[in-house]
Computed example of a mutant assay.
Amino acid sequence: MSNFNNGTAVPTPDALKSQAKRLRSAMAEKQTPISQGMALEAIARQYGYRDWNTLSAAAKSNAPRGWHVGQRVSGRYLGHLFSGTLKAVRAAHGGYWYLTVVFDEAVDVVDSEAFSSFRKQVNVTLNPEGVTHAKTSNGIPHMELRAT
């Protein structure tokens, strides 16, 4: 069997192990017990992979990366350096993330000497590289974020 996945989304490693456990249980009920290793190999073939190790690696590489509530972050918001904490995190389709960032110190979001407008918290949508698609009028991303 090849390493070709049939296009089915690969669940997390824990979900795959749960599937293998249910398979073992079902087989035991039918008086045909199998080992955990056999169950894992059967699950791998079901997803179109040649073996458990290959499927497991694919599942780990598909795991969401990066952001979690309470994580310390820093970067630039509207061109201003900041540090802060993630208050809310939600994974979106295609590796994008919806985040609420609470700044350690409020950021002035107005580039004017006539007045100021400070923000202590913002909601942003980031791409997999930690950058917003939205840009200022001079082409700078609204936010560039990195874990600290």
Rank of each mutant, 00 (worst) to 15 (best):
1 M>I: 15
1 M>Y: 11
1 M>T: 15
2 S>D: 09
2 S>G: 08
7 G>K: 13
7 G>A: 08
10 V>D: 01
15 A>H: 04
17 K>F: 02
17 K>L: 07
17 K>C: 06
20 A>D: 02
22 R>Q: 14
23 L>M: 12
24 R>D: 02
26 A>W: 09
27 M>I: 10
31 Q>W: 05
31 Q>H: 04
33 P>K: 03
38 M>Q: 14
38 M>V: 14
38 M>E: 11
39 A>L: 04
43 I>S: 03
43 I>F: 00
46 Q>K: 14
47 Y>V: 03
47 Y>G: 05
51 D>V: 06
52 W>D: 01
53 N>P: 00
56 S>E: 11
56 S>R: 15
60 K>D: 00
62 N>I: 05
62 N>A: 10
63 A>W: 03
64 P>R: 14
65 R>H: 01
66 G>M: 08
69 V>L: 15
75 G>E: 02
78 L>F: 07
86 L>Y: 02
87 K>E: 07
90 R>Q: 11
93 H>N: 15
94 G>S: 10
99 L>G: 01
99 L>I: 05
102 V>Y: 08
102 V>H: 15
107 V>T: 02
108 D>N: 08
110 V>M: 13
112 S>C: 10
113 E>N: 14
114 A>W: 11
114 A>K: 11
118 F>M: 06
120 K>T: 12
121 Q>N: 01
123 N>C: 12
127 N>F: 00
130 G>A: 06
131 V>C: 07
134 A>V: 12
138 N>I: 14
139 G>D: 03
143 M>E: 01
144 E>A: 06
146 R>K: 11
148 T>N: 11
